[in-house]
């Protein structure tokens, strides 16, 4: 479905992408993982053919370099934060439907599909961030393209909107769409991806399955524990004695855990007869700032 060979993009003397080669099969959901500046967004822009590049790149059998417009017709694109014109929701869908040569009735259909029908007469500026992302998804689906390209699509959404959006993309992937998305959120990659391409400083560092990512990159996650106030000091002492890095935060305690050792702190506290009121798993990039104790 997508093949990239020696994909290279330079901005002056700086190489944003350097000899990146990969293949994505139809029906896959591939995550581009990397820190800011790794080359994720540049790769997606090359896929869309909106900037020049060296090397070979094809989408759905179309040479992006030579036929970028045809390649874009095979792609539904959802940016991190879509900038729409100042129109109503239904007018926006109709405008992009005309550009995508979608049948006029598709505008109403896709708004229904992303549950925006009841907001169709609102101005886009009145929508929440989550609704705007759903509108971007609706626009992406107008011409029923085989490929969806998403650039950190949940970065600006709240937790519930993130979950809903990921579920929608999962459904589309299960229905046969090939999905390529960039992310630096481990939970998103695990929930949505079937394969991960790890980029670093413009180079393809490794390919792996989503559940291997944390261990391959030595990534840590944090377990947030709610402990009764009277047991808080004791729990910090127990966790410290068992070698965990902790960080008290208001009514809860954050404990750093490995991808394959998430239950270990809970066992340590259970053995010390310390009650746990609740817990949740948090990605490193969602952590509040504070002093940690090893």
């Amino acid at each position: 479905m997508i093949t990239a060979k020696n994909l290279t993009k330079r901005y002056g003397k700086v190489a944003a992408l350097s000899d990146v080669t990969f293949t994505i099969e139809a029906g896959e959901a591939v995550a581009l993982w990397g820190a800011n500046g790794a080359g994720k967004t540049t790769t997606l822009r090359c896929l869309l053919g909106v900037q020049g590049f060296e090397g070979a790149l094809s989408v759905n059998g179309i040479d992006v370099q030579r036929h970028s417009k045809a390649a874009r017709a095979a792609i539904g694109y959802v940016p991190q934060e879509a900038a729409f014109y100042d129109m109503r929701v239904d007018e926006t869908a109709q405008f992009y439907a005309r550009l995508k040569k979608a049948a006029p009735h598709r505008a109403a259909e896709v708004l229904e599909q992303v549950q925006l029908s009841e907001h169709a007469s609102k101005r886009v500026s009145m929508l929440s961030g989550g609704m705007k992302q759903r509108l971007a998804l609706a626009v992406a689906l107008l011409a029923d393209p085989p490929v969806l390209v998403l650039d950190e699509p949940t970065a600006n959404l709240d937790v519930k909107a993130q979950r809903d959006f990921i579920r929608t993309i999962q459904d589309l992937n299960h229905a046969g769409k090939t999905v390529v998305f960039s992310s630096h959120r481990l939970d998103e990659v695990i929930a949505l991806g079937t394969r991960v391409l790890v980029l670093s400083e413009g180079k393809l560092l490794l390919e792996c399955r989503p559940n291997e990512l944390a261990s391959k990159l030595g990534l840590h996650r944090w377990l947030r524990l709610w402990i009764p106030h009277e047991h808080k000091d004791n729990s910090l002492r127990v966790l410290g004695q068992n070698g965990f890095t902790t960080m008290p935060n208001g009514t809860s305690i954050y404990v750093q855990v490995n991808a394959d050792g998430k239950i270990a702190p809970l066992r340590s506290l259970q053995q010390a007869s310390i009650p746990i009121e609740d817990f949740e798993l948090v990605d490193g990039d969602l952590m509040p700032q504070g002093d940690s104790h090893a």
Binding site: V50, K69, A70, R72, A73, P79, A83, Y85, L99
Partner: peptide
């Protein structure tokens, strides 16, 4: 400046 151009360019138009 608003980003609307980048989004428009990502559509199948030249």
């Amino acid at each position: 400046e608003t980003g609307a151009l980048a989004y428009l360019l990502a559509q199948p138009v030249n």
